[in-house]
């Protein structure tokens, strides 16, 4: 075993960051047992540098099967950064000799990620109406990344997604008739694999974007990236759970679908609104299944936390949203 985490991190940083003398202010931000996010400062005579470490400590096994893996995430962020997509610069990919597990270190971007603050704080009032259109432009950039330069990732289409969600749902062994209604609708309305498969971010939503007073500053959390239908990303950001209460603004609680579509097309992309809607239904179910999965992990451990248990009780939120999508009651709205 190596020394303390902070000593290992300081040793790692001084190895590749010329002039750095150590680290300071290391603070754990979030994450579960298998993945951690840390904020820290690289102490440097020319001025300290804000940094973020994302890592899976050694001793934790393979990531869940959906995850692209931290090494792939690092490459994706590097490619995104190089293509001018708002993204933190990746400074270092962890190596075995670092003794820190797997993961990477990136620059810390100032701004806000907490969705409710982005939707309610006065500081963002001026930029909020522009975010849906910006999101469309950023997504178009992500979907345009050259596949030849990207790491190996899972390939997904509606049928594979339905199969996985069905398997996960059946694994919980708890009946949720609304989930069956959604699965049935998704199978009956499956548009088939997309003609032109692209990179899909997989978790592009309010909460995974760093927002400043000038707009989107960084796209985070690439762990669900895969190849598939680009319209999936446009549907996912519209899932009601990511509107954080601002339910009449479908794109992340900050704007309209039309604004996002305009941003996407202005950047050179083509929108298929019917597919976007299809993926919104899929995404709503997906988040519901993920909530049930949290509850499962709470029961079976190792993460026996109250927070996970309570997220299990949010699956019903996706049931009402699925009913609003698939069986709306008279009167609209």
């Amino acid at each position: 075993m190596s020394g303390s985490f902070e000593a290992d991190l300081a040793r790692c940083v001084t190895r590749w960051c010329a002039g750095a003398t150590g680290i300071a202010n290391a603070a754990r931000l979030s994450g579960g047992a298998s993945q951690e996010t840390w904020s820290f400062d690289i102490v440097h005579p020319d001025g300290d540098i804000g940094a973020i470490l994302r890592r899976a400590p050694s001793g934790y096994g393979a990531a869940p099967e959906r995850a692209a893996g931290l090494d792939a995430e690092a490459v994706l962020m590097q490619r995104a950064y190089a293509a001018g997509i708002p993204s933190p610069p990746v400074m270092h990919v962890l190596e075995a000799t670092d003794g820190l597990g797997t993961g990477f270190i990136m620059g810390r971007i100032a701004g806000e990620t907490i969705a409710r603050k982005i939707l309610r704080d006065d500081a963002f009032a001026a930029v909020r109406p522009k975010l849906a259109q910006q999101a469309g432009g950023v997504l178009c950039g992500i979907h345009g990344l050259d596949r030849a330069t990207l790491p190996q990732l899972r390939r997904m289409n509606p049928a594979t997604e339905i199969a996985e969600l069905t398997r996960d749902y059946h694994g919980f062994d708890w009946p949720r008739p609304v989930f069956d209604l959604a699965l049935r609708w998704l199978a009956d309305n499956d548009p088939g694999p997309v003609q032109q498969e692209t990179l899909v971010h997989g978790d592009f939503r309010n909460g995974n974007l760093i927002i400043g007073e000038d707009g989107i500053r960084a796209v985070l959390d690439w762990e669900l990236a895969h190849f598939g239908d680009p319209m999936e990303d446009l549907g996912w950001i519209c899932v009601n759970s990511w509107r954080f209460g601002a339910i009449d603004k479908p794109v992340g609680g900050f704007g309209s679908r039309e604004e996002m579509f305009a941003g996407y097309e202005a950047a050179g992309g083509r929108v298929d609104a019917a597919r976007v809607k299809y993926w919104e239904v899929m995404g709503t179910l997906r988040w519901g299944v993920m909530c049930c999965g949290m509850m499962q992990r709470f029961r079976t451990g190792p993460d026996h936390s109250m927070e996970r248990a309570m997220i299990g009780r949010r699956a019903s939120e996706t049931e009402i949203d699925l009913l609003r999508l698939l069986a709306p009651r008279a009167g609209g709205g």
């Binding site: 009601n240 339910i247 949010r314 019903s316």
Partner: peptide, 8 residues
Amino acid sequence: DQPNYASY
């Protein structure tokens, strides 16, 4: 579960 959920 969530009586303050906006859709509800």
